[in-house]
């Protein structure tokens, strides 16, 4: 792959999703995909800014689009939440002339629309990458039963996220199946875990998380697989029945690359046992 992407790691890259960002880096370089972290970036506004001010939320995301535009390369985004916010801002810049004029003035730049937002799931699920992924597999995930959990931010609204199907997305499923895992179809792929208000309304969030986990357990899954940093943290921390693993960690496991032992310890529900006796 000869494309080079600019790269937006997001705030959780050094905190709650450190194992995600590490594994993303390992997988990307194993597949020969070059990325260059934005020289400067700020928080996308996450799940909070839009609640208080649309202008602030779009402004923070547009700040990063401005940086990516300077780099002249499509912006690759691992975190589903960041991807959603940046895509919304890109959409507003593209289609809302009034907002575009406002943001251009506030940020002192001129939006060209030449660069695109790209989620890491959409990149790694590309058809042309499948042979490369299969070729990198050292130890297939044979026998591992997984359910793929997409959550909200990668999925909705479909017009912004470009998801394949907002009620039954399959990109993660395809990747997991290619790695040799047994992908179980289940009904909670795109259900909300309540992560937005996790820090303020823990009780309700716990209820939602356990509702989802009930179905995953009933489906006979060994673990949930996700690409959303907020979902992972929220689902992992509010139950003790099943691990939730980032899809890039699963890829690294199949490729047998990266410091996986260190990653597993970062999880509250440690998934190490899933990979031991295979």
């Amino acid at each position: 792959m000869s494309e080079t992407f600019s790269y937006y790691p997001g705030c959780t890259s050094h905190s709650t999703a450190v194992e995600y960002i590490d594994s993303c880096g390992e997988v990307l370089s194993a597949l020969g995909i070059e990325t260059k972290e934005l020289p400067d970036w700020c928080c996308c506004g996450a799940a909070s800014a839009h609640n208080l001010s649309r202008t602030l939320a779009l402004g923070l995301s547009a700040f990063n689009i401005r940086e990516a535009q300077r780099e002249k390369a499509d912006l690759l985004i691992p975190c589903a939440g960041c991807y959603n916010n940046l895509s919304r801002a890109d959409n507003a810049l593209r289609h809302d002339p009034e907002m575009r004029a406002h943001l251009e003035k506030a940020l002192g730049f001129s939006y060209t629309g030449e660069i695109r937002m790209l989620s890491i799931v959409d990149l790694l699920a590309r058809e042309e990458l499948r042979p490369a992924i299969r070729a990198r597999i050292q130890k297939p995930l044979t026998g591992l039963k997984v359910v793929c959990y997409y959550g909200c931010m990668l999925v909705r609204p479909a017009g912004i996220t470009g998801i394949d199907d907002p009620e039954n997305p399959v990109r993660l499923d395809t990747i997991m199946a290619d790695l040799g895992a047994q992908v179980i179809d289940w009904s909670c792929k795109t259900d909300c875990c309540g992560g937005d208000l996790g820090m303020s309304h823990g009780k309700k969030t716990k209820e939602l998380v356990n509702g989802i986990v009930d179905y995953a357990v009933a489906a006979g899954a060994d673990c949930l697989v996700t690409s959303c940093a907020l979902c992972q943290m929220n689902v992992d921390s509010r139950q003790n029945r099943i691990p939730i693993v980032f899809f890039t960690e699963m890829m690294a496991e199949a490729f047998q690359i990266g410091n996986r032992k260190r990653w597993w310890k970062k999880h509250i529900n440690n998934p190490a046992h899933l990979f031991k006796d295979r």
Partner: peptide
């Protein structure tokens, strides 16, 4: 509480640029 969370979050970003 919800407003408090969102305010604390954005205030934090105002200080550091990141969370």
């Amino acid at each position: 509480t919800a407003v408090g969370l969102h305010t604390a979050f954005t205030d934090n970003v105002k200080v550091f640029g990141r969370l």
